[in-house]
């Protein structure tokens, strides 16, 4: 079975520093978000249980060629890179990924993280499913494939839904679906030898449309708090009561 895991190259969030409320992104290494690694791991586990192939699809700037080695080291069999230098919004990324998926011979299962690590807009998966006209199940905490049927546990805030669908299906996964494996040295060294198809986005011959989202500003929030020092528990309780937080509520 052919499994596609769509991953997004993002700056390493742990290494972003803030100066004068501005995020400093220069020199921050690019990587995949942690949740994308869980998506890949989910794909790997399905592959191992059912045989087949895991292909990683990513859209983004040229640095992808290096970043994708992380996914290949972690077990993906091959990668398709859609090279776009310009910034894209979720709708544009979705159109590009959908176009790339259409070019592929047969895709049974598409897996993504439930939201990208940096933007967390959670749109791309849903948009791709709509473009391809296939069913989707978001927020999966468990995926089991039996023949041409996939059984998914969708984990919502207040309940879990057990859903069955015929392949092909698009699934987005929660970060707690698994613990992504750490690749070994040999896997890392072999990653560069796995097949990678790199496609300039314009060669796909589709119109991904205009950027529909305009960012006015993107700053670390200011924090202004009163910092009133109370000197006893009694004083704190009185203060809480004046804010409307009584003990007996």
């Amino acid at each position: 079975m052919n499994i596609v895991v769509a991953m997004k190259q993002i700056p390493d969030l742990q290494q972003i520093r803030i100066r004068n409320r501005q995020p400093l992104l220069d020199d921050v290494p690019l990587t995949f978000g942690n949740i994308d690694k869980n998506a890949l791991e989910a794909g790997m586990q399905i592959k191992e249980a059912n045989q087949g192939k895991v292909t990683v699809v990513c859209a983004g700037p040229r640095e992808l060629a290096d970043t994708v080695k992380e996914a290949l080291a972690a077990g993906a069999d091959e990668a398709r890179l859609l090279i776009v230098e310009e910034e894209m919004d979720s709708a544009q990324s979705a159109r590009l990924i959908a176009a790339a998926l259409r070019q592929m011979e047969q895709v049974d299962l598409i897996i993504m993280g439930e939201g990208s690590g940096d933007n967390y807009s959670s749109q791309v998966g849903s948009r791709v499913a709509q473009i391809l006209g296939i069913p989707q199940v978001g927020f999966a905490s468990c995926i089991e494939v039996k023949g041409s049927v996939v059984r998914i546990t969708r984990s919502l805030e207040d309940c879990e839904e057990i859903i069955e669908a015929q392949l092909p299906v698009l699934i987005t996964v929660m970060s707690d679906i698994n613990t992504a494996r750490i690749p070994s040295v040999s896997q890392i060294l072999r990653a560069g030898k796995k097949p990678v198809v790199s496609i300039e986005a314009q060669e796909l011959g589709i119109d991904i449309g205009e950027l529909s989202i305009e960012t006015i500003s993107n700053l670390a929030p200011e924090m202004q708090r009163r910092q009133i020092v109370t000197t006893s528990a009694a004083e704190l309780v009185r203060a809480l009561e004046s804010e409307g937080f009584g003990g007996r509520g």
Binding site: K69, A73, P183, A191, G192
Partner: peptide, 12 residues
Amino acid sequence: KEQLLIQKMARD
């Protein structure tokens, strides 16, 4: 990139 990944693997 391979060396960075080996470093990261060991760190993780």
